[in-house]
């Protein structure tokens, strides 16, 4: 573990859709073992930012580097680069025609050309760690949302990525299933994984983050440590945003 080592480097990236600037001159460096939580109102560009980081979207301007390599959908070795970046989506998106075990083992076998026996063994270990041993030979439709999302995390982990991107992974889940997924992510944090997490779970963000990025209108408005951000945000916009998560006690008229 080398906290000085730069894993991802984002330099002045901009991205627009139909003249609307979704990302506007964003720069950010992610160090090894660092956990960055990105928060902000809907439509602020959080998801687009993550999608640019593994080349699912092209940036209009600026550069994204993974180590020494440029990340962009048009570079020749983009699939090689994506192997090194794990991404988990909001809607889990397991492959419905494959069992949970097959979902997890497909990419290591077909992309990394690893041996079936070795991949199966690692898959079983990882699935056990997230509490899915009993579900290995079942199909995604037989699992709950939380179970599917845990399987999707394992599917990303087995590729041994250098950095993990989580795009609102609990947003589509029923409230009682949010916890089980967040617990898996807290476990990953204890293993010193490098992670970028987009989330609306503020208590979770505060607990897991080394740094909190507040994104609004395509800009990084704040970049601070969680203690500071959640108690004394520097900007008005952050304060307003955080206030949307708290409620005052209702004083009834008598």
């Amino acid at each position: 573990m080398n906290r000085e080592k730069e894993v991802l480097k984002i330099e002045h990236i901009s991205k627009g859709f139909d003249q609307l600037n979704v990302l506007d001159d964003i720069s950010l460096t992610v160090h090894e073992g660092e956990i960055i939580v990105i928060v902000g109102p809907s439509g602020c560009g959080k998801s687009t930012l993550l999608r640019c980081l593994n080349g699912l979207e092209a940036v209009d301007d600026g550069h994204v580097y993974l180590g020494e390599e440029t990340v962009n959908p048009s570079v020749k070795n983009i699939t090689r680069i994506r192997e090194r970046i794990g991404m988990v989506f909001q809607s889990y998106d397991l492959f419905p025609h494959k069992t949970i075990l097959e979902n997890v083992t497909l990419a290591p076998m077909k992309v990394q050309k690893r041996k079936r026996a070795e991949v199966n063994e690692e898959a079983k270990k990882l699935l056990e760690r997230v509490g899915l041993s009993a579900k290995m030979s079942q199909y995604p439709r037989q699992l709950s949302g939380g179970q599917k999302q845990r399987a999707a995390i394992v599917r990303a982990l087995i590729m041994h990525p250098e950095v993990l991107l989580f795009d609102e992974v609990t947003a589509a889940l029923d409230p009682e299933m949010v916890r089980e997924v967040l617990d898996v992510m807290l476990d990953l944090a204890r293993q010193n994984r490098t992670m970028l997490i987009v989330t609306h779970e503020m208590a979770f963000a505060r607990a897991i983050a080394d740094r909190v990025i507040f994104l609004d209108g395509g800009h990084i408005v704040e970049d601070s440590d969680p203690g500071e951000f959640f108690t004394l945000p520097k900007t008005d916009r952050a304060r307003k945003f955080l206030n949307t998560f708290t409620f005052d006690t209702v004083n009834k008229e008598i």
């Binding site: 593994n54 699912l56 699939t79 090689r80 994506r82 192997e83 970046i85 794990g86 991404m87 989506f89 809607s91 998106d93 492959f95 497909l106 990419a107 077909k110 992309v111 990394q112 999707a152 599917r155 990303a156 590729m159």
Partner: peptide
């Protein structure tokens, strides 16, 4: 077939043909 099925496959490093 939703777009995200393609994307989650690409995100695993699978090329288009795979």
């Amino acid at each position: 077939i939703p777009m995200i099925q393609y994307e989650s496959s690409y995100a695993l490093g699978m090329r288009r043909s795979k």
